[in-house]
Amino acid sequence: MKTPSTGALAASMIGIAVLALIVTGRPGGHAPAPSPAPEGPAPSSVSFAGFTLTSDAVSLPVDDRQFPDGPHADVINANCTSCHSASMALTQPTLSAEQWKATVTKMKEVYKAPVAEQDIPAIVDYLTALSSHQAK
């Protein structure tokens, strides 16, 4: 961590005065234009000594991609995509049935995914088949 010299301090105080003008004018900086601003008053902000924090509201893109068709695709779509995108599984390297079973079990036991015990073999079969297909 840097410790400022007296000269740097003086320079930075001037800098901060300038910065106050800049920051006031451009909250959000060079970020691309977000989704259309909601109607209503300007977002609230707090400022002190040249730095401003402005309330933020965003909308995140919705992922409607499903797992590709195949045996048990309905089971995996029903069980897995509410917590995470299908791409989490679709981007994986080739994994063995044992590795996929370990992953699905971890989702259920550690992350408390509400997956019925009887659905696990179908999910593991689907992922194992998909995984070996993707490697070709």
Binding site: G28, A31, P32, P34, S35, V58, S59, L60, P61, V62, D63, R65, H84, S85, S87, M88, T91, Q92, P93, T94, Q134, A135
Partner: peptide, 23 residues
Amino acid sequence: GNAERPITSAFPGKGSMILQRMH
């Protein structure tokens, strides 16, 4: 293999990024 990923600009406050997972 299985190494191709889309480029996305669909996220708030973000420019071009490699999409590993949307959600």
